[in-house]
């Protein structure tokens, strides 16, 4: 078992919380893991990515090789495209569809969507909207994990356990909202692929 995942987004959007939950679930499953992240300058609203590698054997490189990623999990649509050179030929792009527009030359969103549609395996999800609908806009990242959950090679229960562990000290209400976000994201993917 090996899952190489590029997590992408914009500095400040919180891709590291995604890495923390998936990483917890991986370690809890007795798997090996390496997760390289970006600190420093780009965290000020620049593009950020994290290389998350999970395997049943020792992981060598902290970086995923080009053409080797099983998934690009992005919380911003344009950012999902920036890392395409990392994607393997049968890899998945799972991306939030809500743009984070903090630059003056952000492309027409239709053009971004067209490029995403050209990718063989893709899931496009309005995670911001889903999180708002369940009354927890802050849980957008957990909706994204849910949307990706069937492709992570991890038990869904372990992801739930990861959420409980990470949000536990914030109280039951926060935990439950995030669990609901996870579940809703997963259901969305099920329906998306039926279409």
């Amino acid at each position: 078992m090996k899952k190489d995942i590029i997590l992408s987004g914009v500095g400040g959007q919180g891709i590291l919380s995604i890495a923390t939950v998936i990483g917890y679930a991986a370690i809890d499953s007795g798997l090996f893991m390496k997760q390289a992240e970006v600190h420093g300058m780009s965290q000020r609203g620049g593009d950020v990515q994290s290389h998350l590698r999970i395997s049943d054997r020792e992981v060598c490189s902290d970086l995923i090789p080009f053409g080797g990623a099983d998934m690009i999990l992005s919380i911003e649509p344009m950012e999902s495209l920036r890392y395409l050179p990392y994607l393997s030929s049968d890899g998945w792009v799972i991306t939030n569809s809500t743009p984070f527009n903090n630059i003056s030359n952000y492309p027409e969103i239709e053009d971004v969507m067209k490029e995403i549609a050209r990718i063989k395996n893709h899931i496009l999800i309005d995670a911001d909207d889903i999180a708002k609908n369940i009354g927890s806009p802050m849980s957008m990242n957990m909706v994204m994990i849910g949307a990706a959950s069937d492709y992570l090679g991890l038990d869904f229960g372990r992801l739930e356990k990861g959420i409980k562990f990470i949000f536990g000290r914030k109280g039951d209400e926060v935990v439950n909202k995030n669990l609901e976000a996870l579940k809703t994201g997963r259901e969305f993917t099920g329906n998306f692929l039926k279409k």
Binding site: R44, M78, R82, L84, P85, Y86, I103, N105, P107, D111
Partner: peptide
């Protein structure tokens, strides 16, 4: 490898 589509703009900090 796949290339980065031209539509992708740089996003400096």
């Amino acid at each position: 490898v796949l290339s980065v589509p031209q539509v992708v703009a740089t996003r400096p900090p």
